[in-house]
Write a protein that binds this DNA or RNA. Structure first.
Lengths: 147, 147
DNA sequence: TGCAATTAGATTGTACACAAGATAATATAC
DNA sequence: GTATATTATCTTGTGTACAATCTAATTGCA
């Protein structure tokens, strides 16, 4: 009786909890790999976008990463202090701050090349499972904005 | 050529990123529901375990939630300040702090009953998709500890 | 043109996460 | 039985997250 009534509030019946816990566990697994690059996990995924784009505004970066300026501003200042990027106001629109990859930042990409394979080896999922998980996570991520 | 070489470092080819981003998005969706209960998301899942156990040590709580005392100590002090739990040293072992549900904390459970259904309505996943996702997330969560 | 609305970014304040180190209590080895 | 190791928790410091607020620049429109 009571079990049924409160079953919805049991941790083991939540979808959010394994999502939250697994996310933190994966980030924890990245730590040793990323420490060698002097990057945190958030800095790492930020660098991924910058490696791809070479130059991008804070706003666009936030759109890609689902992060706002409150998180990105200090993070980008830190990446700038490490010498991986520069931050300059756009001349075309002074509101915009453009983040640009430096040579040091580009060189870091080479050293980061081994990270993804190392991480994949840590995860005990088959390729099919990983693909299914990937699809479902993106469905979650892109579907709930309407509410 | 270059694309292939660096494909592993593209954000869109990461499994970790949608995991991380979806986790934050779901927690963001919980916010309006939990604000009415004066709980953050982490406090909410902590209360779930305490509602279930009534009394639990900080260590056991950390095992259930994958959180350490550095996170839990201030969080539990905050829950204590709100009147939902008490924190007392175990008499049997003075190293252990026992967290106990108060009457106020128990009453909060009633008000939390509507949260899970409200959240499920926000997620546009079928029951089958949710079940698959749940299974894969727990596989991730429980399988990578060996490395 | 001129001004209200919008936009991009920075700042502030609160709350995690978590590594690293400290402290006190208990268990273990000898 | 005592020295040592282990354990549980707390504390400190760093780095996110994110809401709310602020500022400055740009856009839109009457």
């Amino acid at each position: 009786m009571e079990q049924d009534h409160y079953a919805g509030l049991l941790l083991e019946n939540q979808l959010c909890f394994p999502l939250y816990a697994a996310s933190r566990e994966i980030i924890r697994l990245y730590r040793p790999y990323l420490e060698a690059l002097d990057l945190t996990y958030t800095q790492y995924i930020t660098m991924m976008v910058i490696w791809e784009e070479r130059e991008i505004s804070v706003k666009q970066l936030g759109g890609r990463l689902y992060l706002d300026s409150g998180t990105l501003t200090p993070l980008l200042k830190s990446l700038e202090a490490k010498g991986y990027v520069t931050r300059t106001r756009s001349e075309a629109d002074e509101r915009v701050v453009l983040v640009r990859l430096t040579d040091t930042g580009l060189a870091l990409r080479e050293r980061a090349l081994s990270v993804p394979a190392g991480m994949r080896a840590c995860l005990r999922l088959t390729d099919a499972e990983a693909a299914t998980l990937y699809k479902l996570l993106y469905k979650l991520l892109t579907s709930e904005t309407g509410n």
